[in-house]
Design a binder for these strands. Structure first.
Lengths: 152, 152
DNA sequence: ATGAGTGCAAAGGCTTTGCATTAGG
DNA sequence: CCTAATGCAAAGCCTTTGCACTCAT
C-alpha cells in the first residue's frame, strides 16, 4: 500500500494524534513488521530484534493495536501473530499452516472478494449484525510442510 | 447434523477407536457443547458445569481436539472458544462481536459457499498450498451490543 | 522542563502436570 | 484386573505491571 518511506511518516502522524511519540523502539518494531513477509509472533520479533526488551515489545504492540496501526491475528498455534493493519498493508487473507504454524498473506481475486463482501453484508443485515470486517483463512499445509510429508 | 441421540454414540465410537473411554465427565462436556448455541470459553463451560473440575475440562477438551470431535476457535477476546467439530455440527462460519466477544454460528448461502470453495481451491493450487479447510468470520457488533450503542 | 516511554524484575492469570486414587470396559 | 481418567495442588509460561530512570518534544 504505502511506499516504504511513507510508512514511517504515516505511523508517526497517527501516533502524534494520540499524544504518543514515535520513539526509536517503536520505529524498530514497525520496521520489523514491515520487512517481515508474514505476521509475526512476539517470540519471532524478539529473536529478530534482540535489542528490544520484551516489555517494550508487548507494550508497544498494545499501543499500535489500540491506534489501529497493527492487528493481532491468531493462526494455528496458540500464539498471537502481529502484522501491520490493513489500511497500511491492504486487505488480504491468510494461508495458515497447521503443521508449522506459519501464516502467509494472500489476496483473493478482486471479483470474488467483491462478491463475498456483498454476500456478507446481506447476511449480516439479515442477522441484525453490524458488520465491520471479515477474516478469511485458508488452513492446510504450507509448501514446505507438504513437501516434508509431515501431516501433523 | 447428527440427531441428538446419535451424537453421544458417535462420540463414544470415535473415542473407543483411540483406546479412550467415554466417561461421565466427557459425556457431560459434550452435552454442554451440544446444548450451547455458540462456541464456549472454558470459563463459560466451568460456570455451567460446576461439577466438572477445571483440570478435567482442560484435559478432556484436549482429548476431544486431538480426536477431532471438538475444535478450538479464537474470537475477539483473547480466549479460545470450543465447539463441536464441523463433521458433527456441519460446516459454518461465525459472527464475532468485537465488543462482547460472543460468537454466533451462521451459514453462508450454499451457492456462495460452493463458489468460495472453488475459488479457494484454485488459489491454494496456485500457491502450492495443500488446502484442508477454510475459516470465515464476520467481525463487528452483535445485535445486543449494537443496540446498546457501545462501540468498543 | 515534563510527561511519555523504558527496562528490569516481580506479580498475574490461564493452562499444564505430577501423583496417588478411582473407575471404565 | 488393568489401564485410562480423575482431582487436587503445585509448577509452568506467556503476559502484564510497578517503579524509578531516561528521552522525546
Amino acid at each position: 500500500m504505502a511506499v516504504t518511506g511513507e510508512l514511517h511518516d504515516t505511523v508517526a502522524a497517527r501516533l502524534q494524534q494520540g499524544d504518543s511519540r514515535y520513539t526509536r523502539h517503536r520505529r524498530a518494531l514497525i520496521e520489523v513488521l514491515r520487512v517481515a513477509k508474514q505476521p509475526m509472533t512476539i517470540a519471532e520479533i524478539l529473536a529478530v530484534a534482540t535489542d528490544l526488551p520484551q516489555s517494550s515489545v508487548y507494550r508497544n504492540l498494545a499501543v499500535f493495536e489500540e491506534t489501529g496501526l497493527v492487528q493481532r491475528l491468531v493462526g494455528a498455534g496458540d500464539f498471537g501473530r502481529f502484522e501491520l493493519a490493513e489500511d497500511l498493508l491492504g486487505h488480504h487473507h491468510h494461508l495458515v499452516c497447521s503443521s508449522c504454524g506459519s501464516m502467509l498473506d494472500v489476496e483473493l481475486p478482486a471479483e470474488l472478494e467483491a462478491e463475498l463482501e456483498r454476500a456478507l453484508a446481506t447476511l449480516a443485515r439479515r442477522k441484525r449484525f453490524q458488520l465491520h470486517a471479515h477474516r478469511l483463512d485458508l488452513v492446510g499445509l504450507c509448501r514446505d510442510c507438504a513437501a516434508a510429508g509431515r501431516a501433523s
